Each structure stands twice: as C-alpha cells, then as structure tokens.
Simulated scan of single mutants.
Amino acid sequence: MPLLMAGCANAPLEQAGSLSSYSDLDQADGLLAKSKIRIRKDEVLAARTVRIIPTTFAEGARTETISDDQRKLVGNAIDRTLCAGLSDRLEVVPASQPADLTVRAVVTHMTATDEKAVATTKVVSVAKSFLLPGVPVPTPRLPIGLGSLSMEAEARGKDGTPEAAMVWGQGANFLSGAARVSTAGDAYELASAFGNDFSKLVVTGENPFKSLSGPPPAERFQAMAGGAPKYAACEAFGRAPGVAGLVSGAVGAPPEWTDKGNGVPAAPAETAAAQ
C-alpha cells in the first residue's frame, strides 16, 4: 500500500462553490480516493426519481493541455456512469422534468496525463511480451506525468434541500488502471470511479467506501457492453464503447477513438460561480 500511494498522482479536494455548505462534510476516504461526504439517509432513500444536470467545469479545472472536446468527453463519462449507477435504485428522468432528487457534479481540478510517458510504458510492455512470451510479468507505468481528477457533487430535493454531497479526488497510479496515450486519458478513466462512488452514496444512503459493492444488475452489464441503458433518459449521455472501449483501453488507445460521447455539441463553459 505505501508503494502504491507513493506512485499516485495528487488530487486536491478543492472547493468550487457549487455545494450548499462545506462545513458539515465528514472525512470518508477509500483505498485510493480521498473524499468528504454528507448524507441524509432517510430522505435520500425515500426518493424514487432522479434527474442529472450535465457536469460542468470550474475555471481551475480548465488546463490548456486538455482540449474542450476532451473535457466534454470526460464530463460525459461522469454523467453516463452516474446515470447507470443511480439506475440501480432510482428511476432516471430527463433533466427537463421534475424529480425527487437533482444531481449536479462539477470538476474542480484536473491534471493532464503525460502522453510520452504512457507511450514509453506501452513500448516496454510490448518488448516484454516478445522477450518473455507467456510469462505474466506486470509492466508498471512510469511514475511521472500521472493525471488526476477532483470533483464535487450534490443531490438536492424538490425544494432545493441538499440531501447528499461529496467532495472527491483521486490520482492515477503506476500499478493499476488503464494507461491511455491521451492528455485526458487518466481523467477519463477516473471519471467512472467518481460516478460509481457518488451514485453508491445516493443509492445506499451510506459511505460508499465502507463495504465492497456486489455484482451489478443485469441492466448495468448490458449498458457497460454498449447496449441500451435501463432508462431512456440515460441515452442523453450516449452509450458506452463496450468491447471496443475495453480493447482500446488495454492497448492504451485514446478514449476519443472509441467513445462517441453524447453526440451533442459542447455548451458554453460554465464557471463555478454560475452554479
């Protein structure tokens, strides 16, 4: 564990001002993720419907080395994962319709991935397969240029009362996860980690890091494979790349090659103050 943490990118728990309050958040760290949460369990579990406002980026998360199209892809990956995870218990309705809960997420910090370092790692991996064919020797990433993602999100009731909130941050590490030759590669991979953690908080009403998740429902498997999501409202975030996405991740291809996003032109950037 100390070795893993030593080779992990730093992901600060920054505040973008989109949450109702930061004073009553409790520390709730996972194995790799740092997090602070707030949950009103009874109120959250009483909810039956949810709508998702598309993820936005705070000004501090807009690095020049990551393009607007790449940011859009990362934001959409967050929303797609949230939609799939929340569907385990809640009915997801379109963002234009009222719901028991409204979920909104903001990217507060994002560090680019060093494409050259990832490419070098992939070259070493290929060389190993030739020199040691059939030998299961892992190929760690070069522990430089690791990307990171920091988020904050809140679920509010019909009257605007904050029912659940999370400030979250996680960096890529050199031992686990898919390394992609893209400046947005690590942020894209970490998008699903955040989406799973926040949706579990809302679905269970409990700290998502206290227990291991069980096997996902059949509908989630179908969506992960690129099939139709459980609820039509999730189609707003496009479909997962499926097998093609898994293969491209394994070989280190940029997510832009297989993930088509939501197919909707990017909206003008919103600052945290506009939230």
Rank of each mutant, 00 (worst) to 15 (best):
A33S: 11
V106D: 09
G85F: 13
E219Y: 12
T65Y: 07
A253R: 09
S129E: 11
A95C: 03
F209V: 02
G177M: 00
A250N: 12
G147W: 12
R141M: 12
P133E: 07
S35F: 03
V50I: 03
P217A: 08
L212C: 13
G171W: 14
G242F: 03
E256P: 02
L13S: 04
S20D: 11
V123T: 08
L201P: 05
A61P: 11
E43N: 04
E14G: 07
P140T: 04
S248F: 10
V93H: 09
R51G: 01
L142N: 14
A187K: 01
V247M: 11
S192H: 05
S176V: 11
L146K: 13
V92I: 15
E91K: 15
K210L: 15
P98M: 02
A273W: 12
L190H: 08
G252D: 10
E91M: 14
D79H: 00
L31P: 00
I144L: 15
E91A: 08
H109Q: 13
K72Y: 07
A184T: 04
G7I: 08
G214Q: 15
V167K: 13
P136R: 05
S213W: 14
K122R: 12
A191P: 03
D79L: 00
E235C: 02
S18N: 09
D197G: 01
V44D: 00
T113K: 03
T161H: 10
G145S: 12
G263M: 09
A266D: 10
A184W: 07
Q15F: 11
Q15W: 08
K122T: 11
D24A: 01
P2C: 07
A33H: 04
G263E: 10
D186S: 14
R71Q: 12
V103I: 15
M110R: 13
A218W: 14
G30W: 08
A105F: 02
T120M: 11
D100C: 06
A112K: 06
K41M: 01
P217I: 07
N76I: 01
K72A: 06
R71L: 03
A178Y: 14
A228K: 03
C234F: 04
P133Y: 06
Y22I: 00
A253H: 08
L45T: 02
K41S: 00
T161Y: 12
S176K: 10
A46H: 03
V167T: 07
A28W: 02
S23P: 02
A165Y: 08
M5G: 08
R38Q: 12
A272D: 06
G160R: 09
V103A: 02
T258W: 08
V167E: 12
V123Y: 11
C83H: 09
I66T: 03
R156G: 04
V123D: 10
A267F: 04
P138Y: 15
F174C: 14
N207K: 02
